[in-house]
Design a binder for these strands. Structure first.
Lengths: 361, 361
DNA sequence: CTGTTAGCGCTTTCAC
DNA sequence: GTGAAAGCGCTAACAG
């Protein structure tokens, strides 16, 4: 007489019965096959296959101390930078027994805190969170968590445990240095709204200009937190979905030129803005790179294909995801929680859009 | 003496003890508050808050028949069309007790089958899968599944249960009709590689041209399955990550023009291709829309910002995700498995890139 | 409306 | 190398 609460599939016990052993042996074959005698092991594997047995994850989780779920919390599921990271994470756990539990914080620290609390409640195998801007309470929870915690996309002296990313300051500095070396002198910066990481880039931009003695604070367009609504006629999901829009880039270039018509180059906080700026330059009949140098950020596919191709700063997005998953796996294996700061580096990708004909600056 | 196997947090029992009632009452407050007397309920809620109690999902899952996890399997986590869908799904379950378990099939039906098997093994509350091209075995499993199954992104006479999408044939037909009405006569089609849905668009394109008596099979560039490698110098993750690249779009326009230099308009299988085609047209000094009309597909932010703005076909990606989640919730609530074919419709977004000056065709 | 009883399927601990 | 017993935290069923 079957129990109505029972799920229908085969259980450990039924496999055991068929293999002629006890349930615990089946469990061992599943979890540490090497400690079971080869002969018995084969029998169990055969029995499991015949029944097409599949573990009940909930039961396993309940009975064991730890789950095999890694919690991943990202600020956006649409912005290409994070979709690349996510792909890396998924690829990184592909051949392990780990699962991904994904949360979208919508760039909201309180939402992030809520998700962290919820995920931690499920005793994840590891946690991967984005950036270092967690609320105090989030940080406390993460520090108290009894699992590896990986922060990504940034670098910090004082990570919760392990942080994997690159220096946004260096990134901003290097791409701006490149512009300076090309002879551009009135170099603007455009960002939609500025989080900790964008601010790092902005500071790098500023430093490079200060060193060259050509810094002018008027040439920055950032912190437009209230200005994220970009196209009133757009459908809601597009209007609010992604604060990094090409239209926004066009608008910002226009504003920048209104402030200083003599701006000769612009560093855009992401490639989409840069492409927007390029389109605006075309509309204004500004020649790129002669009249205006344009540099993007992230080095996505788009900027390699534009006309002219845009210089950008290559960021190791996919690698960060992959490595984050790898670190989680490795920390789990070794049961270590060694602090680590992993800099995956960056690279300036120089293309036509910033190759200024060598007239005098 | 604490049990070493026990997880540290408070349990139902501890909340019950504090509230001075039995565990099952606490469980009821959590699951169907309305059947508990207000007074007791308040006490329980207070006790739970004081202990900062959080349910153990594994235990709940094990003890109940069904989980609150909806399995979502998407062919890509980077292509914008699916990231929009995913965002819709996440938003759709936001205020429910449902969780998302996400799988990436990498456009591989066998991988999809593997994921379906794995997810189904966990008795999900519902399944959301993309398209109607599942393997026979996948289809069988899904039909046998005792949970709502939602297919998305397409329409089909014979869905497993519920399908939410739009007609790709109509989409291709309508945008091509628009081009014909604008007076374009030699209209090409470009697609990187063709799945069932792209093929629908292609057939719509073909039909519209046949009706106008201007169909020429030479003007299609598709099924380039072996040609997805677009930029040998690109880093691996970018090279293989996303088959929809702007560079690919540039290359395809060039090929199309090589086949027929007189092509006067092109329908691109996605907006990224369309932007690539636009850049290539600029490089070739073709005027858009005078010399070449360009239409994209999906109506993403990018094509509204280009110069000139590109016509495209608006697809309800976000809405599909939202609705899929909604249907799952509703089917769960009503315990119904009524077949449904839900067409969320499309719309031609007409912009400058296809507004042909009214000379004679 | 509330409580009692009995598991859900697995793994841990400790014997053998 | 293998097994027996116990229990993870919760909820279904039924009783009161």
């Amino acid at each position: 007489m079957p129990n109505p609460r029972s799920h229908d599939g085969p259980t450990l016990a039924s496999v055991a019965q068929r293999a002629g052993c006890s349930p615990i042996t089946v469990s061992r074959v599943l979890n540490s096959p090497e400690i079971v005698s080869p002969e018995l092991r084969e029998r169990v594997i055969a029995a499991a296959a015949e029944l097409s047995y599949h573990v009940n994850v909930a039961a396993r989780t309940l009975a064991s101390i730890r789950t095999n779920t890694v919690g991943v919390i990202l600020p956006s599921l649409t912005i290409h930078i994070f979709t690349d990271v996510l792909r890396g994470i998924y690829d990184g756990v592909r051949d392990t027994n780990l699962r991904v539990m994904l949360g979208n914080s919508h760039y909201d620290q309180n939402e992030e805190e809520r998700l962290i609390r919820e995920f931690l409640g499920q005793k994840p195998a590891a946690m991967i969170v984005s950036g270092i801007e967690q609320t105090a309470s989030s940080r406390r929870m993460l520090e108290a968590a009894k699992c590896p915690v990986i922060q990504i996309m940034d670098l910090d002296d004082d990570p919760i445990e392990c942080i994997i990313g690159f220096s946004h300051f260096d990134a901003g500095y290097q791409i701006t240095r490149h512009l300076v070396e090309q002879g551009y002198r009135r170099i603007g910066f455009m960002a939609g709204w500025v989080n900790k990481r964008s601010l790092g880039r902005l500071n790098g931009w500023r430093r490079a200009l200060e060193e060259a003695g050509i810094y002018d604070p008027a040439r920055v367009l950032a912190d437009m937190t209230d200005d994220r609504l970009i196209d009133p006629s757009a459908p809601d999901d597009l209007r609010y979905g992604d604060p990094s829009s090409a239209l926004h880039g066009r608008m910002m270039l226009r504003k920048l030129l209104a402030v200083d018509g003599g701006i000769d180059a612009v560093f855009c906080n992401n490639d989409i803005f840069a492409v927007g700026a390029l389109f605006e330059a075309q509309a204004l009949r500004l020649r790129v790179p002669e009249d205006l140098g344009i540099a993007g950020f992230n080095d996505t596919d788009l900027v390699r294909a534009s006309h002219p191709p845009l210089s950008s700063l290559r960021t190791p997005r996919y690698e960060i995801g992959l490595r984050a998953a790898g670190e989680a796996v490795c920390r789990l294996d070794q049961n270590s929680r060694t602090p680590a700061i992993i800099d995956l580096g960056i690279e300036v990708a120089v293309r036509t859009s910033t190759m200024r004909p060598q007239a005098s600056g």
